[in-house]
Design a protein around this nucleic acid. Structure first.
Length: 286
DNA sequence: ATGGTGGAGCATCCA
């Protein structure tokens, strides 16, 4: 079973990239984030193309911001939109979490709040949001995979240059502690312990071209799921070419790949490290 | 060079 997670940064803009990518990679379960559509608009846009490809789907949207979805060819049962105790921001519920049983695994598509500035209201919201998620994720006895844009780099190795992020969100101990508190396995880092591997590159200043990115899109799996992993990689090809998202998909194969390949013969997930110091982070970049 | 891009949508806000 192949699971993928991808922050598409507007699924409407990304349709010409998403549909060929589904045909090429043939994921069984897809977690999308930042769809930026209402449920109705998502269905109008994608119900036909997804049905043609054998996917059922569930979307949790709020219009122009946020929005998460699950696509599945292995079943989509017990769909949950949001999770118990999920906090609001400014008294408004945001569409940042959708979960379902897909092929025996409870899969969550998550778009963790950005946090904006350390110690801002939005940062406090991010921490409380993660606390509530931990309480819910820990409550289930079954196999679980938390997938999505966590807006946290688990370690300094997940940054092109740790010095560029001093004082920024995404790297603070309080955020990283929340990730660790899930008690789940970061399957990408387990598979590639010493590789330079990023999933997000700012659109600005040629960051992707220079491979100046960060790894914030994660698959966090419970032990039994992590034990089934045969391959894990970042699909950097999806970040290239015309009108890409600023994130690349993260792909995880459990047991065997959908085309029968046994995995894990895949290229290293990113380029070798090139010493780059003193690069100024684009303002607002996360 | 103290900027630079892209998506929401129409004035800015967000990442």
């Amino acid at each position: 079973m192949r699971i993928a997670t991808w922050n598409v940064n507007s699924v409407k803009q990304r349709v010409p990239r998403l549909l060929p990518w589904l045909d090429e990679r043939k994921p069984d379960v897809v977690c999308l984030q930042e769809t930026k559509l209402s449920d109705e608009a998502f269905a109008d846009l994608l119900a036909g193309p997804l049905a043609e490809r054998g996917y059922t789907f569930a979307h949790h949207g709020q219009g122009q911001w946020n929005g998460v979805a699950l696509l599945s060819r292995v079943g989509l049962a017990d769909v949950e939109r949001g999770f118990p105790g999920q906090p609001d921001f400014a008294d408004r519920a945001e569409a940042r979490a959708i979960g379902a049983d897909c092929g025996g695994v409870k899969v969550w598509s998550l778009y963790v709040p950005n946090g904006r500035e350390v110690d801002s209201d939005h940062y406090a919201y991010k921490l409380s949001w993660l606390d509530a998620l931990a309480a819910h994720a820990a409550s289930g006895p079954g196999d679980v995979a938390l997938c999505g844009d966590m807006n946290i780099a688990p370690a300094d190795a997940d940054l092109f240059d740790p010095a560029a992020y001093v004082g920024h969100t995404h790297v603070t101990p309080r955020e990283r502690e929340r990730l660790a508190a899930f008690g789940l396995v970061d399957v990408m880092r387990e598979r590639w312990p010493d590789e330079r591997v990023f999933s997000y590159w700012d659109y600005r200043a040629g960051m992707f071209h220079q491979d100046l990115g960060m790894r914030i899109d994660l698959v966090l799996a419970s032990g039994p799921v992590a034990g089934r992993v045969r391959a894990t990689w970042v699909d950097r090809a999806a970040r290239k070419g015309k009108l890409p998202s600023d994130h690349a998909p993260v792909i995880v194969d459990l047991d065997v790949a959908p085309d029968g390949d046994i995995g894990p013969v895949v290229p290293p997930p990113s380029r070798p490290a090139r010493g780059r110091r003193g690069v100024t982070l684009p303002q607002g970049s996360r």
